[in-house]
Design a protein around this nucleic acid. Structure first.
Lengths: 252, 252
DNA sequence: CGCTCGACTTGATACAGATCAGTGCATGAC
DNA sequence: GTCATGCACTGATCTGTATCAAGTCGAGCG
């Protein structure tokens, strides 16, 4: 049974949530649900459709945009997982975030008018491209879209919750797994069974730990019966215990 | 001469940058400069003026808003310094950021529609209050204002640069001081001489260090001749060396 | 004035987690 | 099949910084 759930999780994560054809948006769409839910008229929806462009698939390792590229659009992840990262002068990488289906990337490029980081596909990735000038123009006509943009941007601020401060490795990893699980759940994927599309060292880098520490903590969690690790498949067994470990790092 | 600069810095930091009367905006205003610079018509400027409300002064320790308050407005700091922070269930504080004159606070409240943190005055603080619904409505009519809001929101995303990852105490503190200095400079205050309006433990908390460590690192920097510390007055002596120490944490 | 109180500094010790080094196990090339 | 390569895991040290514990300084106050 644990196996079944894992299989489902893997499938869901690697599949497009739905067709997202000409008539309706993807179920995970950043704007579709909001617009439909708030009674935006059909004409406006058509306008929004016109400026969406499906791009991809990208293969693992390919970049959707790179640091310094001129900013022209924001992207919504349709399928797969994207990591954003910086590479400093000495070539060291710093992982900024992971982005799951339904989440937006490129929002931090509006201000400097160029992308301030690389966006790299971790597995097979498809995205929707929204031309930002067009979107902004549309937003002046359709307050609901402006509002949704404001909300999305606001959401991204001060979101470094998981990595912050001198919390222990256990706390960080527990919080990381729970947050990932919650984000998948919010998009309708399996909740307690997840496939980590990123390597151990990506996780470590993101959390400010060494890769070895991530291994050790995962093993410790498994030994305590909190979860089941099989390579990149993780089945969360005891959510309460994990939540208890992570409690100081989780807001929502 | 070092003393003179310090005195100037202190004065500037504790004084309102200019009058900000009915006819024009504060020189540090979040919107004024942009609007004037981009040829927004006078009628629009009047509208913007109408929704600004000067609030304060707050004394050190008083709060501008608190966690859970219903979101209704964003604020621009006119004078003084504001810290934003979370307090967890066990009563432990986590400092999220410091906000200098000209900077906006409350942007992260748009999404949850309530303030997700406390905003506390560190010294005597005056702010401008912008009703957000009114501002959003105005933004649909004046694209430049919408654009400026987008830019400001974008700027706040992924800005945890200084605190991130497993950088050393030296790196963090160097980066912190340089960033503070740069932010003051950007608002027209003294560059290499600054008054820290926050306590050592606030700095430590913000950077994810112990207060003792902050003391020790400051002393080490002073011993190396990089800067001059006198209580909360800091005069940066060797910017290059500091920048060298901090290099991995500074983007711009 | 001496008192207390808070913010800051300094020193001694302990420990979490980095780092180094090595092993195992896939996958893909040839 | 062998070999190379990349990722994950584990064990043995090492170290930066937290923590504990005093001690100093200055401000406000009876």
């Amino acid at each position: 049974m644990g196996h079944d759930e894992t299989a489902i999780g893997r499938m869901a994560a690697n599949t497009i949530a739905d067709d997202g054809d000409e008539q309706k948006f993807c179920s995970t769409c950043a704007f579709g649900a909001v617009c439909v839910g708030r009674g935006v008229d059909k004409l406006a929806l058509t306008d929004l459709h016109c400026l969406v462009e499906h791009v991809g698939p990208y293969r693992a390792g390919e970049s959707i945009f790179r640091t310094g590229d001129r900013f022209g659009a924001i992207f919504a992840v349709r399928s797969g997982t994207v990591k954003t990262r910086l590479v400093d002068l000495e070539g060291r990488e710093q992982v900024l975030d992971f982005h799951l289906p339904g989440e937006l990337i490129g929002l931090n490029a509006i201000h400097p008018e160029m992308y301030p980081c690389d966006a790299i596909a971790l597995d097979s990735v498809e995205v929707c491209r929204f031309s930002f000038p067009a979107l902004a123009t549309l937003a002046t006509r359709i307050p609901q879209i402006q509002q949704e943009l404001f909300r999305r941007l606001s959401k991204g601020i001060g979101d470094a919750s998981v990595r912050n401060q001198e919390s222990s490795a256990d706390e960080r990893l527990a919080a990381f797994l729970l947050e990932l699980s919650a984000r998948y759940a919010a998009r309708g994927f399996a909740t307690h069974s997840l496939r980590l599309s990123m390597s151990r060292s990506d996780i470590a880098n993101y959390l400010g730990l060494a890769a070895e520490t991530v291994s050790r903590v995962l093993r410790r969690f498994q030994d305590r019966g909190l979860l089941d690790v099989d390579g990149r498949e993780v089945a969360i067994g005891n959510v309460t215990a994990l939540r208890d470990i992570a409690r100081n790092l989780l807001r929502g």
